[in-house]
């Protein structure tokens, strides 16, 4: 059987119930991915709304309703495709649990990922301001052909100093005119 991300739950079904069930290959996994997506929208939206006051807040009731719809789809599918009532009930419960976990993972995962991203951005800005631009940053060519690189911005004010390809250091206060230090 082809192993790809879109048939995870089909493979789990086949492993658990074998020939007692004949579900659609992609349906259950598609619902799981959608539930995770609903979770990501809810978690990410609420997190960004609370952090930056952006209008991204998602209603939890709307997200829960969306998950409930997909649970309903899977219950219907379980009953239709299972050979016995026992398998139908077990599969319904299993998929409902997995969808709930997917939704929860989406909420928590999105908050964690966004928090890590924000921390990285904050640290990058902090180090950029304190220690200047990283080496190999923007290069400026002066009228006489001197190439300036290794920009170091001042902590306060708009000034910066550069290293020229002639080995000398150059300084600018307005970003337009340069003088040798």
């Amino acid at each position: 059987m082809k192993k790809d991300i879109f048939t995870i739950l089909y493979r789990l079904d086949k492993k658990m119930y074998g020939e007692q069930i004949n579900p659609n290959k992609y349906m259950a996994t598609a619902t799981l991915l959608c539930c995770t997506f609903f979770g990501v929208l809810l978690g990410g939206g609420s997190f960004l709304s609370s952090m930056f006051n952006w209008e991204l807040h998602t209603s939890l009731s709307a997200s829960l309703a969306a998950v409930i719809y997909l649970v309903g789809y899977n219950i219907a599918e379980s009953i239709i495709v299972a050979d016995s009532a026992k398998v139908a009930i077990l599969r319904s419960l299993m998929i409902t649990g997995i969808l709930a976990l997917g939704f929860g993972a989406g909420v928590v995962g999105s908050v964690i990922v966004l928090a890590i991203l924000i921390i990285i951005i904050v640290f990058y800005i902090f180090f950029h301001v304190v220690f200047g631009a990283p080496k190999g940053g923007s290069k400026i060519t002066l009228n006489d052909g001197t190439v300036l690189s290794n920009k170091k911005s001042d902590l306060l004010g708009g000034g910066a100093s550069y290293k020229g390809n002639d080995g000398k250091r150059y300084r600018t206060d307005d970003g337009q005119t340069f003088r040798q230090e």
């Binding site: 609903f38 929208l41 998602t58 709307a62 309703a65 969306a66």
Partner: peptide, 10 residues
């Protein structure tokens, strides 16, 4: 509060 809310992602 319904799934018709675009932000629900439905």
């Amino acid at each position: 509060y319904s799934v018709t809310n675009p932000s629900s992602g439905f």
